[in-house]
């Protein structure tokens, strides 16, 4: 059955070792179950066969649940064979780069709030500027600001002026 299986990776969370495949299996199981439940409760079709809109989603949900069992079973089998040598490679720890990711997501949320309200050029300057600071550190704020302003203006000219793609404008300044 198996395709080439990579060396199994593990999460280390507070010193506990958890196999990635096992966690994946659990996430898959939860996703599949939730989806199936919502799918079963979809409204009936007003005309034609009433259950038609549900057939495909419900089958997908069940397929997902089956796949999660298969994945967990595969993992258990390996565990039973005591093949623990593979358990070496730690790949995932909550550390600095996760913080950077969270900050990026927050920055993006601010961006989407400002995008229409403040207009493209200004909101993009802020977004890309902050992201550059995040990558390069606060000391390089001058070059970051310069790159951010060049980027937002250049894209504005390319998209809005040359390609005619609609972008929101800043109130009063009208760029």
């Amino acid at each position: 059955m198996p395709g080439p299986e990579q060396a199994r990776q593990i999460f280390i969370i507070r010193g506990e070792k958890l196999s990635v495949s096992l966690i994946t299996g659990l996430i898959t199981f939860i996703t599949g179950t939730t989806y199936t439940l919502i799918a079963m409760n979809l409204p009936a079709a007003p005309l034609g066969r009433a259950n038609e809109p549900k057939i495909f989603p419900v089958s997908l949900g069940i397929l997902m649940i089956i796949l999660s069992f298969l994945l967990i079973a595969q993992e258990m089998k390996k565990r039973a064979s005591k093949d623990n040598t593979e358990y070496e490679k730690a790949v995932f720890k909550i550390d600095n780069h996760i913080k950077s990711i969270i900050l990026t997501v927050l920055n993006a949320a601010i961006y989407s709030f400002l995008f229409v309200r403040a207009g493209y050029v200004i909101s993009t300057f802020i977004f890309v500027g902050l992201e550059l600071l995040l990558f390069s550190g606060i000391k390089k704020w001058k070059s970051s600001a310069l790159i951010a302003i060049i980027f937002s203006l250049a894209i504005y000219i390319l998209f809005y002026k040359l390609l005619g793609v609609y972008l929101p404008m800043t109130p009063y300044i009208w760029i």
Binding site: Y111, T124, V128, F151
Partner: peptide, 13 residues
């Protein structure tokens, strides 16, 4: 450190 913020900006626009 310069390339990826720009990629991000392009992705959103």
């Amino acid at each position: 450190r310069i390339l990826y913020p720009i990629v991000l900006g392009l992705a959103f626009v």
